[in-house]
């Protein structure tokens, strides 16, 4: 497991994982947004790779994908954004999140090499389930990049070992069956899921989908190792464009305060 990722989940408080789409609203605007997310206190960065057909995403991230592609964002731009990020932030873990086709179109080895050279710690691929692992998993593992899998409310106990086999870095628990940006699940169901997942694995579990506010993030952080926030950040970029830097920093700071202190209130 990547040293940066394991360190992010070993800080003595729950981790805040923040998502933003690369190239939204333009490739040139992304570095300052990433810096704002780091300045706000995020522990892990998920950099979305835009795709023409983001079928697991709701309207907010769909629109972000379209803005990024409309601004001419290419895979080369995303890799350059990652490389420059790594130079500015040697310690902050960076995860690429996206869909199978842009990741595998030049071959999985090409992608793993390029991601590794760019200082990427992990990869989340929405549409490669464990059943199709050979498509991407072996190439990433060979380069020491974590393949972060998703578990969902439909992943029952019989299937969970299949999902965990070959997962590393952290496990991303999708709290609701649905697309990104939906309503968050009830905290009681997240707690039950966490009990089930933690009984099955030692890797950290982060909970995402539908988490928008510090009020939602805090209680989740009380039961999970990390909380993922995406659409709420992407919405700010949609509203303010390149001027979203300060609003994004402020939102991330409020989320970080809630997530990092969640266990203190729990005692």
């Amino acid at each position: 497991m990547s040293a940066r990722l394991s360190a992010a989940f070993a800080k003595g408080h729950p981790a805040l994982v923040c998502f933003v789409t690369a190239g939204d609203p333009t490739p040139d605007a992304t570095p300052a947004l990433l810096d704002a997310i780091v300045a706000g206190g995020a522990d892990v960065i998920e950099l979305g790779m835009p795709f023409t057909d983001p079928m697991a995403d709701g309207p907010a991230i769909q629109a972000a994908n379209l803005r990024a592609l409309g601004a001419g964002t290419k895979t080369a731009d995303i890799l350059r954004i990652a490389t420059d990020f790594r130079a500015r932030h040697p310690q902050v873990p960076l995860v690429l999140m996206g869909y199978a086709n842009p990741m595998t179109i030049r071959g999985s080895e090409w992608f793993a090499d390029a991601a590794s050279a760019a200082g990427v710690d992990g990869v989340i691929c929405v549409d490669i389930p464990p059943e199709e692992d050979p498509e991407l998993g072996p190439a990433l593992r060979a380069k020491g990049i974590d393949l972060i899998r998703l578990a969902t409310p439909t992943t029952d106990s019989a299937r969970l070992p299949t999902v965990l086999d070959g997962s590393s870095g952290f496990l991303y628990y999708v709290s609701v069956a649905g697309i990104t940006g939906k309503q968050a699940a009830a905290i009681s169901s997240i707690k039950d899921a966490m009990d089930r997942l933690k009984a099955a694995t030692d890797i950290p579990v982060a909970v995402g989908f539908g988490v928008r506010t510090p009020e939602q993030a805090g209680p989740i952080a009380r039961v999970a190792d990390g909380v993922v926030v995406g659409s709420a950040i992407v919405d700010l970029v949609g509203q303010h464009g390149a001027d979203a830097v300060e609003p994004v920093r402020a939102l991330v700071a409020s989320l970080a305060a809630a997530v990092h202190s969640a266990r203190e209130h729990a005692a």
């Binding site: 697991a56 549409d127 389930p129 439909t154 649905g178």
Partner: peptide
């Protein structure tokens, strides 16, 4: 596994896989 030679397969989000 649903493969026609190198084609086909099951490339779906985890929610749908079960």
């Amino acid at each position: 596994r649903g493969h026609f030679g190198a084609f086909g397969g099951r490339y779906v989000a985890e929610t749908l896989m079960p």
